Amino acid sequence: MFQRIKDAIKIDDNNNFSITIRHHVIFWLVYFLFTTFRWGSYFDDYEYAFKTTLLGFAIHMTLCYFNIYYLMPKFIYTRKYVTYAITLIASLFFVLMLKFNLTYFLVSSNVWPEGPEVTTTLTLNYAIEMMLGELYVVTFVTAIKVTFDWIREHKRLVDLEKLQLETELRLLRTQVSPHFFFNTLNNIYSLTIEKSNKAPKIILKLSELMRYLLYETKQKRQSLTKEIICLQNYLDLESIRYGDQLKINVDISGEIEDKEIAPMLLLSFVENSFKHGANKSIGEVNINIDFNVIGDFLHFRISNPIATEKNNNAIKTEQGGIGIGNVKKRLALGYEEDEYHLDINDNGKEYVVNLKIKV
Score class of each variant (00 low, 15 high):
226 K>A: 05
229 I>M: 07
231 L>A: 08
220 K>R: 13
229 I>V: 12
234 Y>G: 05
223 S>I: 01
237 L>T: 07
222 Q>D: 03
215 Y>F: 15
218 K>Q: 13
219 Q>F: 04
241 R>I: 02
235 L>A: 07
233 N>I: 14
229 I>L: 11
227 E>D: 12
230 C>G: 10
242 Y>C: 01
239 S>T: 15
230 C>T: 11
239 S>D: 09
214 L>H: 09
232 Q>T: 12
227 E>T: 05
235 L>E: 08
220 K>N: 10
219 Q>E: 13
226 K>Q: 13
243 G>A: 06
234 Y>S: 07
215 Y>S: 08
222 Q>H: 10
240 I>E: 14
241 R>E: 08
235 L>C: 12
236 D>W: 01
229 I>E: 15
224 L>R: 00
230 C>W: 00
226 K>Y: 08
231 L>I: 10
237 L>A: 04
242 Y>F: 11
235 L>I: 14
214 L>I: 09
227 E>Q: 13
223 S>M: 03
226 K>T: 02
220 K>S: 15
223 S>Y: 01
235 L>D: 05
224 L>E: 00
243 G>I: 05
221 R>L: 15
231 L>W: 01
214 L>R: 08
231 L>S: 06
217 T>M: 06
242 Y>R: 01
222 Q>A: 12
225 T>W: 01
243 G>K: 08
236 D>V: 01
235 L>R: 05
227 E>H: 04
240 I>K: 02
217 T>P: 09
229 I>G: 11
219 Q>M: 09
226 K>E: 14
225 T>A: 10
240 I>V: 09
215 Y>A: 10
227 E>L: 05
214 L>F: 08
241 R>K: 09
237 L>N: 07
225 T>Q: 11
214 L>M: 15
214 L>K: 14
228 I>G: 02
216 E>N: 10
243 G>P: 03
233 N>Y: 13
238 E>T: 00
218 K>S: 14
222 Q>P: 00
216 E>L: 08
